[in-house]
């Protein structure tokens, strides 16, 4: 096994099971729709809240869908083979999470302008929203990967995983929505984007190692 052959196999696997990604995106759409339906469909409410709504929907759909990231490989024994392959497990994890991030975030970034329009988000905020999604979501996926590894051996682990991981998403959501609010009030938002980038970078360093520790403890 090489890193390249693992990357190819991951892309193929994800392409074959594209329904997973489609489900996650549909879940994202549904959560967004809940807000105008459940609270208030008027532009007065939605325009200032749009950034937050999209971010909450994105975070929820990431945490719910990433839960099964390692489930199948755990069941069919390929996860064990990754551990004993002699390759560095954190790098393999990074590849896996990276492929999944690309597969889910590209369509989500394309969907976002549509929903920003439907939620009456001012157009100058849209670019900032897209920037926060681009910078912040790697953190969501990386932290989520730890949770997925923690609960991989559990049959009913989804609820526990959400309970464990969602609190770690709070800072990312807070800084992202703060950046969107900042542009709406005409305030500088660069610092908040930098903080987001810092969190994602921290997750990039910490998460693969933590995930590999959990996986090693789980496959025994």
């Amino acid at each position: 096994m090489t890193y390249l052959s693992f990357f190819k196999a991951e892309c193929l696997t994800l392409f074959r099971s594209k329904q997973r990604v489609v489900n996650a995106l549909l879940f994202f759409v549904l959560v967004v729709v809940l807000f105008p339906l459940g609270i208030d469909p008027s532009a007065d409410f939605l325009a200032p809240a749009a950034g937050g709504i999209i971010w909450c929907a994105a975070a929820l759909s990431v945490v719910v869908s990433i839960e099964s990231l390692y489930k199948e490989s755990y069941a069919d024994g390929t996860l064990t083979q990754l551990v004993v392959s002699g390759l560095s497990l954190p790098w393999l994890i990074l590849i896996k999470v990276g492929v999944y991030w690309l597969a889910m975030m590209l369509p989500l970034l394309l969907l976002t302008p549509v929903f920003a329009q439907m939620l009456f988000l001012p157009s100058d905020s849209l670019l900032v929203l897209l920037a926060t999604l681009l910078i912040g979501t790697p953190g969501l996926f990386l932290i989520g990967s730890i949770g997925a590894a923690l609960t991989v051996s559990l049959k009913q682990g989804a609820m526990l995983m959400v309970l464990l991981i969602l609190p770690f998403y709070f800072p990312i959501i807070i800084f992202s929505t703060a950046a969107i609010k900042a542009i709406q009030f005409g305030l500088p938002y660069g610092g908040l984007l930098a903080l987001l980038a810092a969190i994602s970078l921290l997750a990039l360093v910490v998460a693969p190692v933590m995930t590999s520790l959990c996986i090693k403890a789980s496959v025994r």
Partner: peptide, 26 residues
Amino acid sequence: MGIIALQNTLEDVTLANQAAAIVSVL
């Protein structure tokens, strides 16, 4: 509550130890 739930749910002691330690550090 998450750490408590994790330790109560994972039956394998070694795994529960590892998992709780990781969440604590995070």
